[in-house]
């Protein structure tokens, strides 16, 4: 037996993510985006909503790194602020969906069979709405706003989390160590809390990291359609909407709206993949 320093699972996972080259790149991007979102109000060169009619539709310059839009607002500043909007939607939505989905999934997997069937039926049905169509229906009913977007995202992604949590719970429920815990007199709530939840949360965390790009894209998409956040708010989707209208005047708006979406998505996906490989080494293929 080699003498190892005892490692808990979480420190092992962190180490594995850092060893993965793409995971490292992902982590750096994620950190940058989060930093942008946190410090945007202090690092923007201009007030992102300040109009300056004389300077409208300018090309990139030292003063305006990515030029200005049709109202003379600094595109670069709006792009930085966009990170804040994106994460303001994505983080609560994904986190909320994860928590609710995990609870419901564990109830479905651990509770009585009829409840499981009922929950699964509802989840499968929600998943059978094409996401954007479902989002549009909700927006049509309750009107566009930042909260609507969060609501839609939560509704559409809860079933995914629930399903994964349920599968995990069911396979763990009959695992020997859970049987042993039962034999050792552990109560059901405690089994859920100390045996099932910790072994489920890792998989869901991976799903969460992979899901953030989808949410960022959905928020941007709805804002692009004019059905997301309200107009003066500098969302990446809103930049794209303006850019689409002015496609023949200035390409910078589309670049400023599109590029951060792609970079953010890449960062979270790389990070998520490394996390998945670390959490579930079985899935790790090659590399």
């Amino acid at each position: 037996m080699t003498v190892l320093k005892s490692q808990s699972r979480s420190s092992q996972i962190l180490r594995a993510v850092l060893r993965d080259r793409l995971g490292m790149v992902g982590l750096v991007i994620v950190t940058l985006v989060v930093a942008c979102a946190l410090f945007a109000p202090w690092i923007v060169p201009h007030d992102p909503n300040a109009m300056n009619i004389q300077d409208r539709l300018q090309g990139p310059s030292l003063q305006y790194l990515l030029g200005t839009d049709q109202l003379g607002r600094d595109i670069f500043s709006r792009m930085l602020m966009g990170a804040q909007i994106a994460l303001k939607v994505a983080l609560p939505a994904v986190f909320g969906a994860m928590v609710i989905g995990m609870l419901l999934g564990m109830i479905a997997g651990f509770g009585p069979e009829w409840l499981d069937s009922l929950l699964m039926l509802v989840f499968d049905t929600i998943r059978s709405f094409p996401t954007v169509m479902f989002a549009l229906a909700v927006v049509a009913l309750v009107g566009p706003s930042l909260n609507t977007v969060i609501l839609v995202v939560m509704l559409t992604s809860i079933p995914t989390y629930a399903r994964v949590a349920r599968t995990q719970t069911m396979s763990l429920r009959s695992a020997d160590f859970v049987m042993a815990a039962r034999a050792a007199g552990t109560s059901s709530p405690r089994i859920l809390a100390i045996h099932l939840a910790p072994n489920t949360v890792g998989v869901l965390a991976v799903l969460m990291a992979m899901d953030i790009p989808t949410v960022v894209a959905l928020e941007a998409g709805l804002s692009f359609l004019g059905l997301g956040v309200k107009p003066p708010t500098p969302s990446w989707g809103a930049l794209l909407k303006d850019g689409y209208a002015l496609i023949r005047q200035t390409p910078w708006l589309i670049v400023a709206g599109g590029l951060p979406i792609i970079v953010t998505t890449l960062g979270f996906t790389f990070f998520g993949e490394a996390l998945r490989d670390a959490v579930d080494p079985k899935v790790k293929k090659g590399r």
Partner: peptide, 15 residues
């Protein structure tokens, strides 16, 4: 009454 299982990998919680 206590129990011992077959698979020593599966009968302990990895975490």
């Amino acid at each position: 009454v206590q129990m011992i299982f077959q698979d020593p990998f599966a009968s302990l919680n990895p975490q």
